[in-house]
């Protein structure tokens, strides 16, 4: 029987789906019986999932001024490079 401390030590392997079969069963049995570890596991999973969602949320919130600044840099680089103006046909 795993202890609570052992279950928390396996939390990352658990959320990453990297527990072996026996370990997975042992963790599940422990979680069925331990309300504290169930809470910990639920919150740990929520935290890890929220980190992934950060990137998706950020992807929706680009600042137009940043895009303009990058494009200006690219224009300058194009002017100072060997790439002829009008390469894009625009």
């Amino acid at each position: 029987m795993l202890t609570c401390q052992e279950v928390t030590a396996k939390a990352s392997l658990m959320v990453d789906g990297e527990l072996g079969f026996r370990e997975r069963i042992a963790v599940r049995i422990h979680l069925m019986m331990c309300v504290n570890c169930r809470r910990f596991a639920r919150q740990f999973q929520a935290l890890v999932s929220s980190m992934a969602s950060r990137n998706r949320l950020a992807a929706e919130t680009i600042v137009p001024e940043f895009v303009d600044g990058v494009m200006q840099s690219i224009y300058r680089a194009r002017e100072s490079s060997s790439i002829p103006p009008g390469r894009d046909g625009e």
């Binding site: 950020a58 992807a59 919130t61």
Partner: peptide
């Protein structure tokens, strides 16, 4: 312009 608009936010993150 499309690539900078589409990918910069996640790159900044």
């Amino acid at each position: 312009h499309l690539a900078v608009t589409r990918y910069s936010a996640s790159m900044l993150a």
